Structures are given as structure tokens and as C-alpha cells.
Amino acid sequence: MSESGASVRDASTVMLVRDGDSGIEVFLQRRVKGMAFAAGVTVFPGGGVDAADGTADIAWSGPEPDWWAERFATDEKTAQALVAAAVRETFEECGVLLAGPTADSVVDDSARYRDARGKLERRELSLAEFLTAEGLVLRADLLRPWSNWITPAAEPRRYDTRFFVAVLPSGQIADGATSEAAQVAWQTPRAALASWRAGEHVLMPPTWSQLDALCGFADTAAVLAVDRVVEPIMPKYSPGPGGRPLSDFPDNERYFDELPRLGALGGR
């Protein structure tokens, strides 16, 4: 349990990227204002791990759970659930399916699974049941481990979130057909950060940090090639003028220097 008394839930977030005319583009969602966590802010697709995500009967291609467990400093069962949740949440929230009929293929049009997508989102169907029924293989090799952020201890809702990166599969389209997103867009990381600095949307530190890191890559091939060392980051609140600024995360001073003056939204 944390200082707030809230338990910490495992979660997965996927930075979906593609190559555009102006460089790397990343898929971003603005969460609906009625959400219990991070309402109205701009995020990557993702969400909490479900108990069913850890099932052992998922057809799997790519690095095995022990490989992911080592990268994310966790046990194999949790690692499998994190990867499964990353695939499930990406499909639920933007319709992109990181799976294929064979271990070395990926579906070229996920729209045919629209009904199953709705059932997954409503928790009427598990990822393993869906993949088995459709004869699909989870493509763990299309994902890369990226970072690990833990919600500050004082917050009432807390997540131990592992960030992944994946390239948009050829032929698939990312959409906004989810109850959790009010707006979606492909943007270059630099453009997303510029519009944040202009006060046009809200970025929490984890999202800001990942966008900032992506600015350093010329194309998606370079992103996939990088061997990231994943170390847990848990910001904390530090007393200071004008509120409770966060500290103990990379470049926290620069984040607050660039943060638009949004009153109570600042840093949250």
C-alpha cells in the first residue's frame, strides 16, 4: 500500500509510431473528461492489466515472458500479462491489432474484428479467447520495452505502468472509436510538445518524457533498434511555491519551466 492507502495496479501503455513526411509521428488520444484517472489529458493508448491477461494459453510469437520479465524487473506471469495487456489495449483503444494468422505475419485489416473489439472493451471476451477463436498469434516481437513509470505515492489511483513502443502495421488504421477518447491525432513528437507549450492540451510528466525522448530519432527503424535500459521512475511531490511540483523524474525542472500556466492543472 502507498502513503495514500491506494494499491498499485500494473498497467501497459503503447507508443504507436509511424514514419511521416516530417519524421516520426506518434498516435495520441485526448481522454474524455469523465474518466476517473487522467481525465482530459493527452496520452498514448493503454490501461490497466486485467486478470485474464495473464492466461497461459495465448499463442505467442517473439521474446518469451522470461525475456520481458528481465527487461521490466518483474516475474514471468506479470510480464506475460503486461505484454498481453499492451496488445489488448492497443486494439481496444485505436483498433490496431498486433497479431497475425502465423508467427511471422500480421493482420492487414483489423476492421473485420470490430465486434470482438467491442466485446473486449466491455470485458465480455478475453484476449486469449479472441485470439484462439480467430486463429491468431500474439506478435510480441512487434513490441519493444521503453520505460517504467509509477504514479506518485500521494495519489488516490496508482499505476505501475510499463511503456512499450510499436510501429503501425502496414494496412492497419488507428482510429478514435473508443469510449475513452474525445479526440485522436497523429503528430510528430515536436509538434505535440509545441502545442503543449502553447497551452493547447495537457501532458503529464510520463507522456511528456516519452515524447521528448522520441524527438531524438530520425525514423521508426532507429526507434526499434535502440536497446533501452528500463529503470522504474516514481515522481514525488515536493513542497514549493504555487502548489506541489513533482520531482525525481528526468528533466523535471525543464518540464516545469516549459509547463503552460494552467492553474490547478499544472503538473497534474
Rank of each mutant, 00 (worst) to 15 (best):
79 A>S: 08
162 R>F: 13
33 K>N: 11
105 S>F: 02
203 L>T: 10
262 L>H: 04
183 Q>K: 14
164 F>D: 13
23 G>Q: 01
150 I>H: 01
105 S>P: 11
75 D>H: 03
14 V>W: 02
139 R>E: 10
201 H>S: 07
14 V>A: 04
39 A>K: 11
226 V>D: 14
244 R>D: 11
249 F>V: 07
209 S>K: 09
199 G>Y: 00
119 K>P: 00
232 P>V: 04
144 R>M: 10
90 T>L: 15
85 A>T: 05
163 F>C: 12
103 A>Y: 07
164 F>V: 13
30 R>E: 11
184 V>I: 15
48 G>E: 14
216 G>V: 07
41 V>F: 04
268 R>F: 05
45 P>C: 14
233 I>V: 14
72 F>T: 09
175 D>W: 01
242 G>F: 09
77 K>P: 02
34 G>H: 03
196 W>G: 03
239 P>R: 07
7 S>M: 10
187 Q>N: 12
177 A>Q: 13
99 A>I: 09
110 S>F: 03
164 F>E: 10
111 A>W: 07
208 W>N: 09
79 A>E: 02
95 G>W: 00
253 E>M: 04
226 V>Q: 15
252 N>G: 01
98 L>V: 03
195 S>D: 15
239 P>E: 09
245 P>Y: 07
181 A>F: 00
87 V>G: 04
115 D>Q: 14
